[in-house]
Amino acid sequence: MTHMHVNLKVNGREVEVRAEPRTLLIHLLREHLDLTGPHIGCDTGHCGACTVDLDGRSVKSCMVFAAQVQGAEVTTIEGIAGDGGAPHPLQEAFREHHGLQCGYCTPGMIVRAWRLLEENPDPDEEAIRYGISGNLCRCTGYQNIVKAIRAAADEMNAARETEQ
């Protein structure tokens, strides 16, 4: 089998990609779909820079083959922002609380935090630290990332209350 047609939904859009089965999801996103938000860090499943959302679960896209995402739904950092490109509360909070320095881990960190807040909208510090334990940051020491995620949770919960 040299190439196959992979149909999937990425950031709400149906796409078809012609790729070898061995193509890694991270390469499919970056090189075939020009979604360069997810980063390649360690390429060994440790660092979490390539984290995306796959069918409602955070995964490391360097450890999934293109062939395996046939029919799947993927969300990357490019799909997190609100209507008209307004930053997501997590993106705002990372900026506000200095949750990034070099920014390399940030797309994976935010996509993971996004799913974490879906699973647990009111995490305490321990739950946040445990929830992002698969994402490495070599700049911040994590303190401001944890603060940012907690602030985003407050913001999102307040917005939900206002809606109701």
């Binding site: 499943g45 979490g48 984290t51 679960r57 955070s58 995964v59 490391k60 450890m63 999934v64 993971r112 974490l116 445990y130 929830g131 334990s133 698969g134």
Partner: peptide, 9 residues
């Protein structure tokens, strides 16, 4: 075992 992303798969 490993971390949340790994345990998801």
């Amino acid at each position: 075992i490993a971390d949340p992303q790994i345990r998801n798969l």
